[in-house]
Design a protein around this nucleic acid. Structure first.
Length: 114
RNA sequence: CAAGUAUAACAGGUAAUCGCGGCUGCAGGCGCCGAAAGGCCGCAGGCGAGGAAAGUCCGGGCUUCACAGGGCAGGAUGCCGGAUAACGUCCGGUGGAGGCGACUCCAAGGCAAGUGCAACAGAAAUAAACCGCUUCAGAGGACACGUUCGGGAGACGGACAUGCCCUUCGGAGUAAGGGUGGAAAGGCAGCUUAAGAGACUACCGCUUUUCUGGUAACAGAAGAGGCAGAUGUAAACCCCAUCCGAAGCAAGACCGAAUCGGGACAAUGUGGCGGCCCGUCACGUCCCAGGUGGGUCGCUGGAACCUGUCGGCGACGACAGGGCUAGAUAGAUGAUUACCCAACGACAUAACCCGGCUUAUCGUUAUGCUUGUAUU
RNA sequence: CGGAGUGUGGCUCAGCUUGGUAGAGCGCUACGUUCGGGACGUAGAGGUCGCAGGUUCAAAUCCUGUCACUCCGA
């Protein structure tokens, strides 16, 4: 990931929740906040209600992979938190990808030129 | 071939591209940061979750604390022998239960130490006479025969005695039979008896003694005893035997910013109060203590794993050889494409490490054995 | 990671210690009362005691396993 790093601290997550805007659809919730840096920071959160550790790890990997492969389509200078909802537990890569870019378009942080 | 039973193994594979975490190496046109040690980036190579990694139900290693020795309390285990570092695990036996069988299952010490509890039903629940059966005495009644009385031969009636039967009251004997109940005073058959009864007898059961076999649990044989010690319950209190110090890697050890605390130095420096000096407060440098944010170690070479030989029925042990096989710290295994297989793959992610147990699980394979059917 | 606790009618809880009848309040239904509603009175319905197995004559209660939820410490 050339332009991005991970969001790690709980306080940073809390900052995004408080100061950012949120949109949601059936599978995901996305919070976005400007961080005034020249790169993005991505945080992924999956609740214990979604499933056991196998399910939770798989979802985080899928979401991170989607972001990694199409990183250049996102605008820069953002803190992004993606929360997986219960409905997403059995969904495959393609469905999660559609849901993520759907939210990106609502936030107007994705390059729509494609 | 079908059904079953026991044990064991596997847990999608191959290739390509992109991506992630450690490790090792680098001669990177002296790449970047740093005084250095080293770190970051890059390149190459190799390694990278499970049979249950799960639940956290037991046992141990390791660490810190406590500790002369012994006991109480509390907890755990519970047929016998063995294996093991240890165990509630495993192996081999004994006894019992289930199955035609292969085989499977059993918290399997002690209610013949004490205490407690046993609803409802039933006469009675750890103890018994409610009904019944037998007998004795009294009362009443029916019948039969006899004697006698009435004017009395007959019929009829009355009185008395005897026999037998019925009803009722009381005493005694009796646990054979009776409905209830999970459980009713050893079971069953006979003898005896007024009726009955381990009162007695045979067989079975229980307890116990001796002998034989076995390390033992126990098994077999012979004898004795009584059956008023004899219901069930110890996953009721409890008794007996054995074992157990407590907490846990977020244990613990080390390095240590900033702020705060104490001291020293410097020297009258800077700033605040003040017109100025003195004074006072803060700032500076160094040292000490504390140990927060953070970092390093603990952290993976092990009662491990693989192969072989030997000992043992077996669990397991001994010896020889072989290679090194995750170590993250918000937490590394994913995505896409193609092919193979009947198939999209089941259950499921290490977090200090081992030995077990339990629970979840799509399926595939191998071997031994049992039962049935068919053929030879 | 470690520790503790709770699952009982629609809701909130008792009963479990010491095994034998499942109970209270609110809610619900019907009737009465009222012009009507509320309140009140009378009667009634409603529970596999989270699930599975075991001990026992008998289990909500005792034992074992399992599932879900809640709280606490760091």
């Amino acid at each position: 990931m050339n332009f991005s790093e991970n969001l790690k601290k709980n306080s940073e997550f809390q900052k995004v929740y408080r100061e950012g805007n949120s949109y949601a659809n059936r599978y995901l919730v996305m919070y976005v906040r400007k961080n005034h840096l020249d790169k993005n920071r991505l945080g992924i959160s999956v609740s214990k209600k979604v499933g056991n550790s196998i399910v939770r790890h798989r979802l985080t990997r899928v979401i991170r992979e989607i972001y990694r492969l199409q990183e250049e389509r996102f605008l820069k200078g953002l803190d992004i938190v993606v929360i997986a909802r219960v409905q997403s537990r059995d969904k495959n890569y393609r469905e999660i990808e559609k849901a993520l870019f759907h939210l990106g378009k609502i936030h107007k942080i994705v390059d729509i030129s494609e």
